[in-house]
C-alpha cells in the first residue's frame, strides 16, 4: 500500500505533466501534418487528402502571403528594436534610480499588460481617428501599437534580470580602476544582456503574432496574421501551415543551437 503510494507520488505528476504537454502540441502536430496535404481539387480544406511536397517546394504560391510575411517581419524587427531600447532604459531607471513618480511609473508599465488587447487596440484607433489619421492607417500606426504593447513586456523581463544583479560586482569593478563607463560596458551590460536578449525575442514573437490590435489599426496593410485571418473564411492555403511549421522549426533550432553552444563553451573552459 505504502509502496504503491510512493510510486504514484513519484510518477503520477510527471505523467500528467507530459500529457498536458502533449495536449499543447496537438495543434503543432496537425499544422505540420497539413503542411504536406495535397488540397488541390478538394473543397474541404480542413481534412487531410493526400501527401505532397508541393507546399514546401512552392511556399510563396498563395497570392500575397509572402508579401504579408515580409511586412510582419519588418514591423516586428523595428518594433523589437525600439521597444527593447526604450524598455531597457526604463528598467535601469526603475531598478537603479530613485526618482519621484517611480511607483506611478511601475503602474503605468503594468497597466497595458492588464488591458485586454481589444481595448488597447480600440483606444488607439479612437485616438488615430480623433487625430484625423483615420484615412492613413497602416505601417506607422501598426508600429506605434506594437512598440506600445511590447514595451511593458521588455521592462518586466529586463527589470527582473537587473534586480537580480549583485551590485557588489559593479562596486568591485570600480574598486579595480574601472571608471563609470567601463564598469557599465564591461560588467553591467554583459551581465544584463541575456535578459535584454530574452526581452527582444519575446517582443519579436509578440509583434509577429499580434492580430487583434493590428486588425483595428492596419488600414489596408496586411500582416501575416491578417492574411491568415482573411483567408480563414475561405479555407487557408496549405502553405500557411508550411510557414507555421518552418517558424517553429527555425525557432527550435535557434534555441537548441544557443543551448548547445553555451554547453560546449562551458565544457571547453572546463578542459582548458
Amino acid at each position: 500500500m505504502h509502496r504503491a503510494g510512493n510510486w504514484i507520488g513519484k510518477h503520477l505528476m510527471i505523467t500528467l505533466g507530459i500529457l498536458v504537454l502533449i495536449y499543447m502540441y496537438i495543434p503543432n502536430f496537425v499544422v505540420a501534418l497539413m503542411s504536406f496535404n495535397d488540397s488541390s481539387g478538394s473543397r474541404n480544406l480542413y481534412q487531410f487528402q493526400a501527401f505532397t511536397w508541393d507546399n514546401w517546394l512552392n511556399p510563396c504560391e498563395p497570392n500575397g502571403m509572402c508579401e504579408s510575411l515580409r511586412v510582419s517581419v519588418e514591423i516586428a524587427l523595428v518594433a523589437t528594436i525600439v521597444a527593447t531600447i526604450l524598455g531597457t532604459l526604463a528598467s535601469f531607471a526603475l531598478v537603479r534610480h530613485r526618482f519621484e513618480g517611480r511607483s506611478t511609473m511601475n503602474l503605468l508599465i503594468f497597466l497595458p499588460m492588464a488591458t485586454p488587447e481589444i481595448v488597447m487596440g480600440s483606444s488607439l484607433l479612437a485616438l488615430f481617428v480623433a487625430a484625423g489619421m483615420g484615412g492613413s492607417l497602416g505601417f506607422v500606426t501598426i508600429l506605434i501599437a506594437h512598440i506600445l504593447f511590447c514595451l511593458s513586456f521588455v521592462v518586466v523581463t529586463v527589470r527582473t534580470r537587473l534586480a537580480g544583479l549583485d551590485s557588489n560586482l559593479e562596486k568591485a569593478a570600480m574598486d579595480l580602476y574601472a571608471n563609470e563607463w567601463q564598469t557599465f560596458w564591461r560588467i553591467t551590460f554583459p551581465l544584463v544582456f541575456p535578459g535584454i536578449l530574452a526581452a527582444a525575442l519575446l517582443a519579436f514573437s509578440l509583434s509577429f503574432d499580434d492580430f487583434i490590435i493590428t486588425n483595428l489599426n492596419s488600414g489596408t496593410t496586411v500582416t501575416f496574421p491578417m492574411f491568415v485571418w482573411g483567408s480563414a473564411q475561405r479555407g487557408i492555403p496549405m502553405q500557411v501551415n508550411v510557414i507555421g511549421t518552418a517558424m517553429f522549426l527555425i525557432s527550435l533550432v535557434i534555441v537548441a543551437a544557443g543551448e548547445i553552444g553555451a554547453r560546449r563553451r562551458a565544457k571547453m573552459l572546463a578542459q582548458r
Binding site: 499544422v31 514573437s205 509577429f208 503574432d209 492580430f211 511549421t245 517553429f248 527550435l252 534555441v255
Partner: peptide
C-alpha cells in the same frame, strides 16, 4: 516552443 507557430494558425 508552440508559441513560435502563429497562434491564428
Amino acid at each position: 516552443a508552440p508559441f513560435f507557430t502563429s497562434f491564428l494558425v
